[in-house]
């Protein structure tokens, strides 16, 4: 396919517009994190800080357990992501490929679990976790996150599995490959973009989750990042914005790095698919 220069120019322009819309708030956040409270409250906002300094960052890092909470969040998010992928792939495959009775049941559960107000589930959930000694522990939070990210992962993954041409698998099974082999060597590579999208979603929803963590984790040593960030918000809408902006910048960077790393895989999924196709 060849693209005309004008079309190309328009494409760049369109991408630029999108990026301004999506990224401007972050740039502004970074700029704010370098501003003093006085400058922050100034009536004429300036895009670049006049006297940039890092005191907001030192204030944020001084905050009890910010770094600790980032490590906790990282641990929880990675564990959740791995578990979700391991558990959801076989189920999604079964949902997309077999017309089993479990399919309508599962899809029903997926819908209801996404629709029913989660806040009303917290209390029964809490009462189940307590006798299992899972409240106030990281594994407890991981399992809860896994279970609650699963519906999305299944719903998405079965869409991606369904998009993998059945013929490829059938060709393989004609060649005598077992079902497992077929999944691992044929379906998985084609599914890579879908798996990565699911992984990103799971990771980020665990990284950002607030309410379950608030209820389940009481030990200050175990607090996750969103819980610590909430600390900068006081009563009656008072916000310590400088330190909050600094802490948010620190909190956003790891996910972005993670994304930058993953999105490259998103492309390589395409390449390997193209080779096989």
């Amino acid at each position: 396919m060849r693209t005309r220069p004008t079309t190309r120019a328009l494409q760049y322009l369109a991408v630029l517009c999108y990026l301004v819309f999506l990224a401007f708030p972050l740039l502004w956040l970074i700029s704010s994190s370098l501003k003093s409270p006085q400058e922050f409250a100034s009536i004429t906002p300036s895009f670049l800080p006049k006297h940039p300094d890092l005191s907001n960052f030192s204030d944020a890092l001084e905050e009890q357990g910010l770094v600790r909470s980032m490590l906790n969040s990282l641990q929880i998010s990675v564990a959740t992501t791995v578990l979700v992928l391991v558990v959801s792939l076989p189920v999604a495959y079964a949902l997309a490929r077999f017309r089993s009775r479990l399919r309508p049941v599962t899809n029903g559960w997926i819908l209801v679990s996404q629709v029913f107000p989660v806040i009303l589930i917290v209390i029964p959930l809490f009462l189940i976790l307590r006798p299992l000694h899972l409240t106030n522990t990281i594994p407890g939070v991981v399992i809860v996150y896994m279970v609650w990210s699963l519906p999305f992962a299944l719903w998405m993954l079965q869409g991606y599995v369904a998009a993998v041409p059945r013929e490829l698998e059938e060709a393989a099974s004609v060649d005598g490959a077992s079902r497992v082999r077929t999944i691992v060597s044929i379906v998985m590579p084609l599914l890579r973009p879908g798996l990565i999208a699911t992984a990103m979603f799971t990771f980020i929803s665990a990284w950002n989750e607030f309410f379950f963590a608030l209820v389940l984790l009481q030990d200050p040593q175990l607090k996750t990042l969103p819980l610590v960030l909430a600390r900068f918000v006081g009563a009656e809408g008072q916000v310590q914005f400088g330190p909050l902006a600094a802490a948010s910048v620190l909190a956003t960077v790891p996910s972005l790095v993670f994304f930058a790393f993953l999105q490259r895989r998103l492309t390589s999924g395409l390449l390997s698919g193209a080779v096989k196709g």
Partner: peptide, 21 residues
């Protein structure tokens, strides 16, 4: 590649921060 990463910014921000921002 850069554009793809930048496009994910809103996602990478905790909701508390998004709303206040």
């Amino acid at each position: 590649g850069v554009a793809r990463t930048l496009a994910l910014i809103p996602w990478a921000m905790p909701p508390v921060v998004v709303a206040i921002m």
